[in-house]
Computed example of a mutant assay.
Amino acid sequence: MNSRRHFMTKAVGGLIFCGCGLSAGAHGQQAGAREAGRPARLPVTVDGRRVKTIDVHSHCLFREATDLLGEQGAKALVPPINNASEAYLVIDQRLKAMDGQAIDMEVLSINPFWYGKDRDLGEKIVTIQNEKLAQLVASKPDRFAAFASLTLQDPALAVTQLETAMTKQGLKGAAIGDQVAGDEFSNPKFDPVWRKAEELGAVLFIHPEGVPELNKRWKGNGWLVNTIGNPLATTIALQHLIFDGSLDKFPGLKLLAAHGGGYLASYAPRSDHACTVAPTFCNPNIKLKKKPTAYLDQIYFDSLVFTPEALRHLAAQVGTSQIMLGSDYPYIWELHPVDPIFETASFSDKERAAILGGNAAKLLAMKSAT
């Protein structure tokens, strides 16, 4: 991973010697389109070389699974927001959208809506989804990969599901929420799942489900339950995994955090001071092997932070080797997810290519270029 000092040295050097704010190699087909006010298009090139763009944060639903919730339950999964209906994936429609976003491949995931259901219903939902995802990936292996669903309310069952997903269904890991019905992921009851993920090399994509304890405060303008709540939920989940010692137990665990990891990377150094300032609020029986910010080396982050400056800051904190392209499609937070990566002046061409697809290809054991 690039150190923060190394990153800032490169950033300053890039600004001094390029002057224009973009490296010379980026001024090809893609850069020219952006300068003319047009978003990047396929094929994406960096310094004249073809780059396979891999979106690690994209979603779908399958009616066969959501129908198990009944009409009202299924309807609740598609909120009245722009483009949400496209979560029910229509292949040709999705491929057209991907082409428009300059995305070669989506890594699909399904946000967990079954953790609060009984175990048997959860198993049925997950079985359908994983089978459908496996079929889709097998039919379009050049355009889609996927994270499995897990019935985490039953950790023993989740272990079996994860093994099947990785060894028989061709999936790349699992998408998980930020907690399970009030139980934090650092609860030892989930350790068998994390142990199996570490053993299999499975990537666990943490996607938040909000902080329902704060529902009263989310009321008002601005869709705060999502605007603030979702990044906060991810931050809480990651901090528990760090402070409660889970990442010491499983140092090989591969975590990928949605929305740039929430607020963790924005204010990570505060974590290093908490137990020094107020040791009575820290468990004396938990002896972390590293300072809290050092665990960021074990976490990967999507690029969905919207602006070049926010992306530059994320990279300065965690290193460009830990960041990969994310859009949140079909929820249209970022319709042109490739562009901020090109527009971040401090990135070298090599770093751009890595974030656009190389890092994901390495993490998920896929081909990085066509």
Rank of each mutant, 00 (worst) to 15 (best):
R4T: 07
K10N: 12
G13R: 13
F17V: 05
L22V: 09
H27R: 13
Q30R: 02
A36K: 08
A40H: 08
R41D: 06
T45Y: 08
R49K: 15
H59G: 03
H59M: 10
R63S: 15
E64S: 14
I81N: 02
N82D: 12
A84I: 03
S85A: 05
Y88W: 13
Y88L: 08
V107M: 15
S109C: 11
Y115F: 10
E123F: 13
I125Q: 03
Q129D: 11
A134S: 15
V137R: 00
F144E: 02
Q153I: 09
Q161P: 05
E163H: 13
M166L: 13
K168F: 09
Q169S: 12
L171F: 13
G173S: 07
P188M: 11
K196E: 14
L200E: 09
G201E: 05
F205H: 05
P208Q: 07
R217G: 08
T227N: 05
T227F: 10
G229H: 10
G229W: 09
I236H: 10
L241D: 04
S246C: 07
L247T: 02
D248Q: 06
L255D: 03
G261F: 06
Y267E: 02
H273T: 10
P284L: 04
I286K: 07
K290C: 04
K290R: 15
S303N: 01
P308D: 10
A315Y: 00
A316S: 14
Q317T: 15
Q317W: 01
S321T: 03
D328I: 02
Y329W: 15
W333L: 12
E334Q: 14
L335I: 11
H336E: 09
E343L: 14
A353S: 12
K362Y: 01
L364Q: 05
